[in-house]
Design a protein around this nucleic acid. Structure first.
Lengths: 351, 351
DNA sequence: TTGTACGCGTTATCAA
DNA sequence: TTGATAACGCGTACAA
């Protein structure tokens, strides 16, 4: 491996000049520059990023702390981060959280070991003490799908999204709306992926929200249960005219039962899934979801903004849910204006 | 941020002693050690990983070059890598390949910038020149789901897997086997995820392989096409008694059509999907697949082995496909012995 | 315009 | 058992 000294020797100049050429600093005679450039190419010289970090105090790495589960939500968000990071020329280091101990360890220790220039935390909420510590050591941190008063955070207005989809349905004349979901998961490691159920509970009792209690099934963890739930909802005389399911799997059952019962979708029955998915795409299922890719992109872009201006004070940002209309609803999308704008940070090379 | 000098000053010792205490080197009087330890805690001293890298020439980072698509295959493999990396105490840096230019750039330049201690390349085949260059600069590299004569490689015996599943079916008395797949994808960026089709073609013409040509449908890219294909296969008088589908989506259609035609699964029809999947799980679909998690784990473990012994010469490793029997086949698993053993590298902290 | 010496924070060597 | 000092490779004042 050639060092800067080798280049200087070969080019017959001082190392300072080589450095200047490498960093495109002004004040180098063209002749000298070319001479040096030639030596650089000849020796295939690449500056050592570690030695460089020694001076600049930056690694060019951005840490991602995320519950790296099989869940498509995390996968999609991380993919959004990847996209933005590639564009911005920095690398992502994955810190995979599998349990609370690991999470706490990352939160308390990672900021101390300065192995990354900044941190994007996904769907995990650091304790106030940890969050403050991160600020104090001057490590830029951004939260995605989580909130801390001490750190810039991005949250999605889930309740709002649920309200909107229900209101859209009401506007279309629907009066009986069914709901099929997995038993609510109370996970201590990461934040609940969504509080759609809370959103529904919130609407509950509102006068114009005429979903019947019996239409709310919360147990549907396997195929048989899902099918039973769908059948239960659709075979009653006063059956719902719209069904929202927590997963595309459950939607499969609803669609099958509807077909068996000769209920036309979307004419006689609207079906809406949660979260974007390969299966939703395949099924032609209309879905409502968090803008996952965009959230990921926002995360790294906003982190870069924080790295460029460390004094920047933490702020709360919100995204709306989005709606993808396919073939299981009609004209529902029109009442949705997709708008999850965020400050567009300038592109910046992190080297 | 406290440095080693601050600690030395506070403890009233030389920096050498502090270093010795930090690295648990022997030859430090207990009294001195405690004095130093006290100073370390008081100043919350953490050694700077960058300065440390300067000496050790290691970063503690492991690079992953992968086509980071939404495909579950890559996701699962990377997850396996994550699991192993966490266990081994090293961090994963994601290098996301989105196009051929980026791929080539990573292959040629990444080994030069010594930002990672080693590289696991997934489903991408570096050119011989690049592979040799990697060896020459002494960067440990391991290929997963790809092969190069110059690098340790892990491949899955796909043809073999297909043969085995077909043979298992033949043993069970099946004589007409259907096949539904997407049009073959010829992707220039990453290796074809599987060459199952090749596997079939390979069996083609063998006397005991009595799948009929008309049973082979290769076009089924959307729901309607898939359903049409399934109907085409199952409605003929001499219908197949077993169907293999390239994706779980297509299996959905087969199962629905079978139900509509009152063909009992698995009694009158065996259905086998490719690749493990949430949907397969939900559907109770029996599947054949590459051992994705294990491949990922093998990748980082084997890379560690190479890092510990840089002289190690490249070798080719093979994994068998695995079979997950669920509710769409019967007793097919018994002829499958799952065996994808690999050398168990010793656990090693990379710090 | 260019060369030199110093410092970044650590580990390793060697003399005390 | 310990402390001083020399690397590691680069950027950058500062002197020439």
């Amino acid at each position: 491996m050639a060092t800067i000294r080798d280049v200087a020797r070969l080019a017959g100049v001082g190392i300072g000049t080589v450095s200047r050429v490498m960093n495109q600093s002004p004040g180098v005679k063209t002749a000298t520059r070319e001479k040096v450039q030639h030596a650089i190419e000849q020796l295939k010289y690449k500056p050592d990023p570690i030695a460089r970090s020694m001076i600049s105090r930056r690694t060019g790495f951005m840490g991602i702390i995320a519950p790296f589960t099989t869940r498509s939500f995390f996968r999609e968000v991380v993919q959004g981060m990847e996209r933005a990071a590639t564009l911005l020329g920095c690398q992502l280091v994955l810190y995979n959280v599998q349990n609370t101990a690991q999470r706490d360890h990352y939160f308390s220790d990672l900021p101390m070991y300065r192995k990354v220039d900044g941190l994007v935390i996904l769907s995990l909420t650091p304790k106030d003490a940890d969050a403050q510590a991160m600020r104090e050591v001057g490590l830029p941190v951004v939260l995605v799908d989580a909130y801390s008063p001490f750190l810039s955070s991005l949250v999605v207005k889930t309740k709002d999204g649920v309200s909107r989809v229900v209101n859209s349905l009401l506007e279309q004349g629907h009066r009986r709306i069914g709901w099929i979901a997995d038993p609510r998961e109370e996970d201590t490691v990461w934040n609940k992926p969504n509080d759609v159920f809370q959103g529904l509970q919130h609407l509950w009792g509102r006068e114009d929200f005429m979903v019947e209690p019996e239409c709310l099934l919360t147990e549907a963890q396997n195929r048989e249960e899902g099918r039973k739930a769908a059948f239960h909802l659709l075979s009653r005389p006063e059956r719902p005219t719209a069904i929202v399911t927590a997963s595309a799997f459950q939607a499969i059952e609803v669609l099958e039962v509807a077909q068996a019962l000769d209920i036309k979708v979307p004419d006689a029955l609207s079906v809406i899934g949660l979260h974007e998915d390969d299966i939703a795409e395949w099924l032609g299922l209309s879905t409502i979801q968090s803008p996952m890719r965009e959230m990921g992109e926002w995360g790294v872009r906003h982190l870069v903004a924080h790295m460029e201006n460390p004094a920047r004070s933490p702020a709360l940002f919100t995204f709306e849910m989005t709606f993808a209309e396919r073939r299981t609803t009609t004209q529902l999308a029109k009442s949705w204006k997709v708008s999850h704008h965020y400050e567009d940070t300038e592109r910046k090379r992190v080297s």
